Simulated assay, not measured.
Amino acid sequence: MEMKNMYFEQLPPARIAYVRQTGPYGPSNIRAMEELKQWANQKQLLNEDAVLIGIPQDNPATTLPEHCRYDACIVIPDDFDFDTESGFDIHRGTFPGGSYLIFTIPHTAEGIQKAWNEMIPQLQAEGYRMDHKPVIERYRPQLLDQHLCELCVPVTSF
């Protein structure tokens, strides 16, 4: 993974709607994201400004696969009227924001897996410290159009 694809960003706190998937990470995460996108499309939230976030809540090295939680999220406007009668299992929450190192990577299963495998040792080798928050996957239309996505790594100082 190339460090030149990395930059710092202060992500703002945001309201989110999300679908939670519990179980082994993989194809079920994609299903959760698809369910979220169906709901978001119905609510007219999928537009050129949409920001989708995947949040793996647990480390599969220390959490049994059947207990791993993945949240497929979309940032929602502050004035969005959250309707619970949509027919979808949608939750609402808050993304806390914070300081992140952003890596732009290929939006493929192989690209994401390679980044996950190489990112932490590379950060440590460069002297960065991770914050105790989940690494997130960020999906924005302008990057998805180029078959790219972002891994956002929380850092405490740099």
Rank of each mutant, 00 (worst) to 15 (best):
K4V: 12
N5V: 01
M6E: 03
M6Y: 11
Y7P: 10
F8D: 00
Q10F: 09
P12Y: 13
P13K: 06
A14Q: 15
A14C: 11
R15L: 10
Y18M: 00
Y18C: 07
T22Q: 14
G23D: 00
P24V: 05
P24G: 12
Y25W: 03
N29H: 03
N29I: 11
I30C: 08
R31Y: 07
A32H: 00
E34A: 13
E35T: 15
L36H: 02
K37I: 10
K37Q: 08
Q38W: 02
W39I: 09
A40E: 01
Q42Y: 04
Q42F: 01
K43Q: 14
Q44I: 14
L46K: 10
N47H: 15
N47M: 04
N47Q: 12
D49S: 15
A50M: 10
V51D: 02
I53W: 03
P56K: 05
Q57N: 13
D58L: 04
N59I: 05
A61K: 15
A61R: 14
T62R: 03
T63V: 15
T63N: 10
P65I: 08
P65W: 15
C68H: 03
C68V: 03
R69E: 06
Y70W: 00
Y70D: 06
A72T: 02
V75K: 15
V75H: 12
V75L: 15
I76E: 04
F80G: 06
D81L: 05
D83C: 14
D83R: 14
T84D: 10
S86T: 14
G87S: 06
G87M: 01
I90S: 11
I90Y: 13
H91C: 08
G93T: 12
F95Y: 08
F95E: 04
P96K: 06
G98L: 11
S99F: 13
Y100L: 00
L101D: 01
F103H: 09
F103Y: 12
T104N: 03
T104P: 00
I105L: 09
I105A: 07
P106T: 03
T108N: 01
A109F: 09
E110C: 02
Q113E: 15
K114G: 09
W116I: 15
W116Y: 12
W116F: 12
N117P: 14
N117K: 15
N117H: 15
N117M: 12
E118S: 11
M119D: 10
I120H: 08
I120Y: 11
Q122Y: 13
L123H: 00
A125Q: 15
R129K: 15
R129V: 12
R129W: 02
M130R: 14
M130P: 06
D131Y: 14
D131W: 11
P134E: 10
V135L: 09
I136K: 09
I136N: 10
I136T: 10
E137Y: 04
E137I: 03
E137V: 02
R138M: 07
R138K: 11
Y139L: 10
P141T: 13
L143Y: 06
L143N: 04
L144V: 03
D145V: 07
D145S: 05
L148Y: 02
L148R: 14
C149E: 08
E150A: 09
E150M: 07
E150H: 11
E150T: 05
E150P: 07
V155Q: 08
V155D: 06
T156K: 02
S157Y: 12
